[in-house]
Design a protein around this nucleic acid. Structure first.
Lengths: 120, 120
DNA sequence: ATTTCGATTAAATGATTGTTTAATCGTTGA
DNA sequence: TCAACGATTAAACAATCATTTAATCGAAAT
């Protein structure tokens, strides 16, 4: 609900509109937590990769040219954020993008932004 | 173009599909740079705020309850990323979200994710 | 010109975070 | 059960980054 707040300067706008545009901490943290994961180029590359295929750790490591402990670390963060899932198959752990609204929204947004920031 | 790469494990998938889903560094960095800005809760709050109103530094600082030097620092980063613009009016600097495809795409995505991560 | 006010910059600090190396865990097959 | 392999964890290190305090800059007004 709109609550009045005394700002240092009054620029003649209607205050409750300003207040309503400030979301609560839960919403802010929920969004920024998801964005923080993809703010790291390595995790973004991994997530993007796993949006298109299911892979084991060694193959992911080879694809992005990093060591497997480093990949494991990033996979754990992505999983904690609910962006990917994993299942065991023999000795291997297979990862892929989560089948959730959040993961799909981020996937679409990434492709959208990629078009914008990379003309042609 | 699809280039074959020898992955440690072959899971019976078609390799060029995997390769095509790995975008180049320019696309990755362009996207992750934009996301990194909004991965910080303070900058996300500021950006969201400036998507709905145009404000001076002191008012932004009061709205998010932080000092003006801290706000200035974040505004500089957001501006460098092309997410906000500024103009001078007397002694004050007024900031608002940029009128760009990138900024609008991020704005819509934020509201979209906020709905997902914050049921109700 | 000097005072005032808003905004920015600089230096310093504290915290977070990504990567590496080495060691450990879990599963499979000999 | 023991050896081999894939994955994870731990500790350590380097690097990045957000915030604070103090100082400086820019514009406007007395």
């Amino acid at each position: 609900m709109a609550e009045k707040k005394n700002l240092p300067h009054n620029h003649g706008r209607i205050n409750f509109i300003i207040e309503d545009s400030l979301p609560d901490d839960a919403a802010i943290n929920g969004v920024s937590d998801a964005m923080k994961q993809l703010g790291d180029p390595t995790r973004l590359r991994i997530f993007w990769y796993l949006c298109h295929t299911e892979e084991c750790v060694l193959d992911i490591a080879a694809a992005v040219k990093m060591t497997s402990p480093a990949i494991s670390h990033h996979l754990r963060l992505l999983k904690a954020a609910g962006l990917i899932t994993s299942r065991r198959e023999g000795k291997e752990m297979l990862y892929k993008a989560a089948d959730s609204d959040l993961a799909q929204a981020l996937h679409h947004m990434i492709e959208n932004i990629a078009e914008i920031t990379c003309p042609e």
